[in-house]
Nucleic acid binder design. Structure first.
Length: 512
DNA sequence: TTCCGACAGTGGGGTCGCAAT
DNA sequence: ATTGCGACCCCACTATCGGAA
């Protein structure tokens, strides 16, 4: 199959807003793909490369290459070239990568170039990723979309399911069950504003501490342990002490869901930055493990022995977990019977925060494990802080925000009466707010370099954030975590904005 | 007819490791 | 030795489609 066909379909998919039409377009393409093309066409149309990331970003792709007049590239040829590119490493590899990308783009038409650039940067932006590709695959093969989706979640990715379906038809979906050693998409939580709201929605539930570390799915099969992140990357080699802990457990075969986090000698959780830095260390793992040891803390069991627990209730799954994993290696929790018992949930949240953790996750006791879903049966509750800050500048938006000033530079008042930048945010803005702020900020503009519009510091905006973290980028030495706009405060003048001093005083646990 | 679940998009900051400078 | 870049952790929120109620 020619790459041009994919580029054209991608353009059509991007051009329509209707998901049914996107699905139909993808289904038609999947039907036409030859068996050898399937492992390439499917991920391409889901906006991903089968090789994963290739070390090619905007910088490498920077220069323009004249497009070819006629399409000639086949998807298999493109895939082969990118596989070669992915193997490069060592001195000179970046220049060689750049050369290979240039050659590939030179063989592509303008349409194909756009599609390839999207794939390489991970930003195809056609309004269709895995979920729409799954629906298209179901339509192309006549399979039940829900069953295809479930198979993909259990397989961990789309490709094996696509290959099996197109080769053997819908009957093969039964093959995709939870297998110890093969990671499944993890279940995710939604946000609730308070434990009262969460318990009100869920009724009988468990309230569990939410640890601010790295989500892991651990598979043990006899003497073999594999550990995967939320995106199912294998990080086993970086976590020898977690592997050792799993081998200490009495069960021989199991799949557990939990969090990996570092505690200091006093037993307090280290900051997310410290835990993430440790888990990210790959070169001298032994040393990193000595300096910042991490602990696994589990909250769910997906399989035990040869039993798949996914469809059991959380209450039943947790009973299995408790049989297998001793207390300190399990998340702390309390059980709540329903809204009449909300004070216990509040007490537990307060205690959890006191212990230095992020918040709680409230989980319905009767819910199954919905792999890959951000379902309504897990609700996270974290304290939210707010500040009144001043807009110092704004950046022009991209995609659907083209033409709007989008990303705001936020400042707090400093000691000298000036403003100190604390970070940026583009979150929380409605289209109406984007329209309003674009107009207002243009009136206040003192400079525009085409990317950043600097403004007179007069507009006060209320910002919600989850906490402070250390920063080497911003002058105060700290920055806001997950900052988002709540509303503009036209009733406030910049002299009434919050100060860096009071911000630091409010977060004594973080020192610049 | 209205409501709401699921998705995609729009980017934020930090850290690590590698290659280039 | 330092710097720049890309990958991958953490993530909030809005708009929109289309099935559920």
């Amino acid at each position: 199959m020619l790459l041009a066909r994919l580029a054209q379909v991608s353009r059509e998919v991007a051009a329509t807003a209707a998901r049914t039409r996107k699905t139909a377009l993808l289904a038609a393409l999947f039907r036409d793909a030859e068996p050898d093309d399937v492992p390439i066409v499917i991920p391409y149309l889901a906006g991903r490369l089968p090789q994963g990331r290739l070390g090619v970003g905007w910088k490498v792709l920077g220069r323009r290459v004249p497009p070819a007049a006629e399409p000639s590239l086949t998807v298999r040829e493109v895939d082969a070239r990118l596989t070669e590119l992915g193997k490069l490493s060592g001195p000179g590899s970046q220049a060689e990568r750049s050369r290979l990308v240039g050659a590939l783009l030179g063989a592509a038409t303008g349409d194909e170039q756009r599609f390839l650039l999207g794939l390489l940067t991970g930003e195809v932006r056609q309004g269709a990723l895995d979920a729409v590709a799954v629906a298209g695959l179901a339509q192309a093969t006549g399979a039940d979309p829900a069953e295809v989706r479930r198979a993909v979640m259990l397989a961990g990715s789309l490709q094996p399911v696509a290959a099996a379906l197109l080769a053997d038809g819908p009957g093969t979906l039964d093959r995709f069950r939870l297998v110890v050693g093969r990671p499944v998409q993890p279940m995710l939580a939604r946000t609730a504003a308070s434990v009262t709201e969460a318990v009100g929605k869920l009724g009988a539930c468990a309230v569990e501490e939410k640890l601010d570390g790295i989500r892991v799915q651990l598979h043990r099969d006899g003497g073999s342990v594999r550990i995967h992140t939320r995106t199912l990357d294998d990080i086993t080699d970086r976590l020898p002490e977690v592997t050792a802990a799993a081998l200490e457990l009495t069960g021989e075969r199991f799949v557990l869901d939990g969090e990996v986090i570092s505690f200091d000698p006093a037993g307090r959780p280290r900051s997310f930055q410290e835990t993430a830095g440790r888990v990210g260390s790959r070169v001298d793992v032994a040393r990193a493990a000595r300096e910042v040891p991490v602990s696994p803390v589990f909250f769910d069991a997906l399989a035990v022995a040869d039993r798949d627990l996914l469809d059991l209730s959380f209450a039943e799954r947790h009973a299995e977990l408790a049989r297998l994993v001793p207390e300190p290696m399990r998340v702390r929790r309390t059980l709540v019977s329903g809204p009449e018992d909300v004070r216990e949930a509040e007490r537990f949240l307060a205690e959890t925060l006191e212990r230095g953790h992020e918040g709680v996750v409230v989980k319905a006791l009767d819910a199954p494990y919905s792999a890959g879903r951000r379902g309504a049966s897990w609700l996270k509750v974290k304290p939210v802080h707010t500040l009144d800050l001043v807009v110092l500048a704004a950046e022009w938006g991209h995609g659907r925000r083209t033409g709007w000033l989008s990303n705001l530079h936020l400042g707090a008042r400093g000691r000298d009466g000036g403003f100190v930048m604390l970070g940026k945010t583009f979150k929380g803005l409605t289209d109406a707010m984007l329209t309003w702020q674009t107009e207002r900020l243009r009136e206040l503009a003192v400079a525009d370099d085409g990317w950043v519009v600097t403004v007179r510091p007069e507009l006060v905006v209320e910002i919600a954030y989850d906490g402070l973290q250390r920063s080497s980028r911003y002058p105060a030495g700290v920055t806001l975590r997950f900052a988002r706009v709540v509303r503009y405060r036209e009733d406030k003048r910049p002299e009434q904005a919050d100060t860096v001093e009071s911000l630091l005083a409010a977060h004594p646990e973080v020192r610049p």
